[in-house]
Each structure stands twice: as C-alpha cells, then as structure tokens.
C-alpha cells in the first residue's frame, strides 16, 4: 500500500513538474499591464475570441488633424490609438526614452505625424520623458495629455 502511495506521489510530482513547465503568462494592458495568470500555458493557446479589430467599425477612423497644425488628434474619439497606447504603454515609454523604436513609429503613424517630422518629435519626446511619465502611477489620460502638451510646445 505504502509503495503504491509512493508511486502515486511520484507520478503526481512528475505531472506537476510537467505542467509547471507549460506555464506562461498572459497579456494585459497599460503601463506594467502584463496580467500574469496562474493558468498553465496550454490554456494560453486559447486566444480570446475577440471579434473586434478587422470586422468592427469603431477601431477605424483616424481622419483629420496632424500635430503640425497644433491640433491634437486626441480630440477625436480615437479608440484605436487609445487601445494601442494602453496595450503598449511599457514599450512606448521604453522607445521614447531610447529615442526610437517600432512602438514609437506605430504611435507616430497613428497620430499621423509625417515621416519627415518624426525624428525631431522623437527627440522632443525623449528630452521630455519625465514630463510625459511623471510617476509610475500615471494613467492613460495623463500620458496622452502630456504627450500632446510636449508635442505642441
């Protein structure tokens, strides 16, 4: 009996080991917004069945306004840009601090900043990093406002 028990223990241990090796986290939003679940990784193979994106209307529609005109495009109901910033806040902050990066490029494109003006804008963002991200408790709306302020200065 004791032997069977030991056997069971070993098998359970080995399975636990295996499933812990399957473990990943899962993606979340915002600065530091990686929500890490305790779900074994194979469950992460499940992509949330999000029927938005390609087939939804709201995410489209960046229509007018460029920073050059001094008109912040944030005024428009720009879900797509907001979603992007919320989901990529950490990388955006990193790119701004480093002065370049793919996330920053995507951000600039969504803001309809002409390619020729980007390098100058990036330098401006970099120099004003502390203004854009004043503290770790900064929220999306503040970051967005701060970026607009910096860009329009």
């Amino acid at each position: 009996m004791r032997k069977m028990l030991m056997l069971v223990v070993v098998l359970v241990l080995s399975l636990t080991l295996t499933s812990s090796a399957f473990a990943y986290g899962s993606a979340g939003c915002g600065l530091g917004g990686i929500v890490i679940g305790n779900d074994p990784g194979w469950k992460q193979l499940v992509a949330t069945f999000l029927n938005g994106a390609i087939f939804s209307n709201q995410v489209f529609g960046i229509t007018t306004g460029t920073l050059g005109c001094g008109k912040p495009i944030w005024a428009s109901n720009n879900d797509r840009l907001n979603q992007f910033v919320v989901a990529n806040m950490d990388n955006l902050a990193k790119d701004i601090a480093m002065g370049k990066g793919e996330t920053l490029d995507a951000f600039a494109e969504l803001m309809e900043v002409p390619t020729a003006e980007r390098a100058a804008l990036y330098a401006k963002f970099q120099a004003n990093f502390a203004t854009i991200f004043p503290s770790e408790n900064v929220v999306l709306a503040d970051v967005v406002d701060n970026i607009v302020i910096v860009a329009n200065n």
Binding site: S26, A27, Q44, T48, N51, A53, A87, N88, T103, A106
Partner: peptide
C-alpha cells in the same frame, strides 16, 4: 477551434514579450 482576429501587437506582446 475558433478563428479570432486581434491587433498584431497583441500577438507580438504575447509571443515576444511574455513567452
């Protein structure tokens, strides 16, 4: 099995930044 459509940055975050 379901088809889903997500912004690509979500997949990049998942594969590159977490896994």
């Amino acid at each position: 099995g379901h088809y889903s459509i997500l912004p690509y940055y979500e997949k990049v975050k998942e594969y590159s930044g977490i896994e």
